[in-house]
Design a protein around this nucleic acid. Structure first.
Length: 434
RNA sequence: GUCCCCGUCGUCUAGCGGUCUAGGAUCCCGGUCUUUCAAGCCGGAGGCGGGGGUUCGAAUCCCCCCGGGGACACCA
């Protein structure tokens, strides 16, 4: 398939939502798979609803997802061309002026067939359509018209777009026909639905791509997830970007709508966090710690690179998003930790002595490695005639403020001697009746 | 309402006439490991919307019904 040219053509009336992102992804993958060109075309002909801010958000979203474009256009920059073609249509007698707008004359009889790459042949009765506006009274072009002129001029070979555009296709085909232009191939991809099985929208909660970034998802996870919504390659679930490019093609795209299942996205995000380069993950962890207000920039700085790396390595094992990781990292920084309700029962008064003894033993340690800490605590526990089980959870909660987390000794080593000793003593004193 | 599309476990999907007593993933529930929780491993529950055909044989092909969605703008 030589010279594939596809485009993603969003209207800049708001943020890029995941449905649009998937359309962009499918176009991008198709272009990259075939060694073709991916065009970003901003459809801003509706000047009252389009904003510069939305354009910026769309670009930022695409960049974050790694969907780079080879060519960039704005429809408003092509108004003269649209006007020229509209005039041509009028002269040909297939368009006429009425109420200040220019209308396209729809064929009264017969049927129009769309040969869709995904849906197959779809026929429409021409009588179902009414004449439609191609040029508004303010001389700006409408979607169906500008779309045809631009796709033709830009040499678009495949129009891959959402299913909701299926009914527009006959209109566009007529315009191509009237102009004597060769239409591109069409591929209508199924919609993404919310849990209630209606078209995914704001009322379903988070739908903006940037919102997923804010919530701590990795772009590769969202890309992987979106790719698998309506497309598959055998039983494979995890795909790297390179694999998606290698395997993606239209024949793997289904024709039925798919529900956006956040539980699966979370699973994928966890998988991708586990696969993430540690240096990068540590950097991201620092960013989210700041974003979530878990610690200040100075505190993160003071923690140091090594500990941040180690924290990322340990915390990614049991957290599904970067935001969760950031909150789980709270104990690495100075300050009071709140004790979870369900953990209050762990702190029995008779633990006051043992905890103080353990704190003192740990304080005497020269090296605060996981191994050293483990040896020290196990030794002390045996000496006190206790079992590790008796103190493990109390220590964990005292130091981390949580009942769940990394291996206790790893956790203590990561927190560092100072925080560990301080927090153990604080709890011990409290239990001692002070 | 009209037109168009769709219909395999709750969800994402494999399946493209026999290899399907329907496979994988997620979610859920057990077990295992263990200082906790995850992860991992083992096991379990859970589906071809219904009815007619065609065929030796249908999840796969055809028809009808039902169900769901989308579109019906001087928005895209």
């Amino acid at each position: 398939m030589p010279d594939v040219r596809v485009r993603f053509a969003p209207s800049p009336t708001g943020y890029l939502h995941v449905g649009g992102a998937r359309t962009a992804l499918f176009n991008w993958l198709f272009a990259r798979h075939h060694g073709g060109t991916f065009i970003l075309r901003i459809e801003d002909t509706d000047r009252t609803r389009s904003t510069e801010e939305a354009i910026g958000q769309i670009q930022e979203s695409l960049r974050w997802l790694g969907l780079d474009w080879d060519e960039y256009y704005r429809q408003t920059e092509r108004f003269e061309r649209h006007l020229e073609v509209a005039e041509l249509l009028r002269r040909k007698g297939v368009a006429y002026e009425s109420e200040g707008a220019l209308w396209f004359k729809v064929p009264v009889a017969g049927t129009t067939a769309v040969e869709d790459l995904i849906l197959g042949r779809v026929e429409f009765a021409n009588s179902e359509f009414k004449d439609f506006v191609i040029l508004r009274s303010d001389r700006t072009p409408t979607y169906n018209f500008a779309c045809v002129v631009d796709d033709h001029d830009m040499g678009v070979t495949h129009v891959i777009r959402g299913d909701e555009h299926m009914n527009n296709t006959p209109k566009q085909l007529w315009i191509y026909g009237a102009l004597g232009w060769e239409p591109p191939a069409f591929a209508h991809i199924p919609l993404i639905l919310g849990p209630d099985r209606t078209k995914l929208s704001k009322r379903h909660g988070a739908v903006s791509v940037l919102e997923y970034r804010r919530r701590g998802f990795l772009p590769e996870a969202l890309v992987n997830f979106l790719a698998r919504l309506g497309w598959s390659h055998g039983d494979q679930e995890i795909f790297t970007r390179e694999e998606l490019i290698r395997y993606f093609d239209l024949d793997g795209v289904r024709s039925s709508a798919a529900v956006f299942d956040e539980a699966k996205l979370l699973w994928l995000n966890h998988e991708w966090m586990k696969r993430c380069d540690l240096e990068r993950l540590a950097g991201l962890l620092a960013e989210y710690i700041l974003q979530e207000g878990v610690a200040t920039e100075e505190e993160v700085e003071a923690l140091g690179r090594d500990k941040l790396l180690r924290a990322a390595e340990l915390l990614r094992e049991r957290n599904k998003t970067l935001v969760d990781m950031a909150h789980a990292a709270r104990f690495l920084f100075p300050g009071e930790l709140s004790v979870p309700q369900e953990a209050e029962g762990l702190f029995k008064p008779e633990l006051a002595g043992p905890l103080e003894a353990i704190a003192s033993a740990l304080e005497a340690l020269d090296e605060f490695s996981p191994q050293a800490v483990e040896q020290c605590i196990r030794g002390k526990v045996a000496e006190l005639g206790l079992k590790l089980k008796d103190v493990a959870q109390p220590i964990r909660v005292a130091v981390s403020g949580r009942t769940v987390g990394p291996s206790l000794f790893e956790l203590l080593a990561l927190a560092g001697k100072e925080l560990v000793v301080t927090r153990l003593r604080s709890v011990s004193r409290r239990l001692g009746g002070e």
